[in-house]
Amino acid sequence: MTTTSTTKPLIEMRDVRKSFGTYDVLNGIALDVREGGVVCIIGPSGSGKSTILRCINGLIPVNSGTIRVGDFAVEAMKTDRELIALRHQVAMVFQQYNLFPHRTVMQNLTMAPIQVLKENPADVRERALKLLAKVRLTGKEDAYPSQLSGGQQQRVAIARALAMQPRVILFDEVTAALDPEMVSEVLNVIRDLAGEGMTCVLVTHEMRFAQEVADEVFFTDRGVIVERGPPKQLFQSPNDPRLKDFLDKVL
């Protein structure tokens, strides 16, 4: 494997294995993401895509292998303090938005920076207003999540992730639960972020979008990375028969 860049990647997974009971989800995943890179993970459902993301931010402990994010050795993390430091750097956006329904949009954005990172509330609120403008939701500060559409909720979730000022954002099938007409408004926000140099790891079924924004695409099947490469190469001249089969089905 040759690396084009001399600096070491921001995220580095080596031979990561994970099983739930007797079911092996990840069978030796190797993956790296450079700072500012946009990486898409595609593959059939049940192939371990979402599990990869949850291992990167330590939501799921791995059985073996190493995961490095910046200076953190994620697989060795034990204490709450270490995990909080990691999650300060790695934010995540979920398929089901998972906003806090009992809090307003503004509170959803400011809660964690104030309560977890102990930042100055006034500064956090100011930052949150800018982030709401960035995701095109100015004026919705006092709305509750249930009063927003799915696309709006997902954009709030992206702003909430950004409010932590992370170095990387993990997107877990963030458009999969949305009505078709709302998909583009969320993808536009992600496209903006990618353009600004935010490091993004996306698990997605939006093949056209992956082709457009990704620097590199990873195809997973049954817990292994079957093929990786620049999107053009992967989508237009796939090598592995499993990838060919998959692309035939989804494109």
């Binding site: 931010n57 709450d80 999650r87 934010a91 995540m92 998972n98 906003l99 309560q115 977890v116 932590m164």
Partner: peptide
Amino acid sequence: IPSGQWESASSLGYR
């Protein structure tokens, strides 16, 4: 309360 609430709160660094 759905497990997604636990998941998103932990991903924001809450103990």
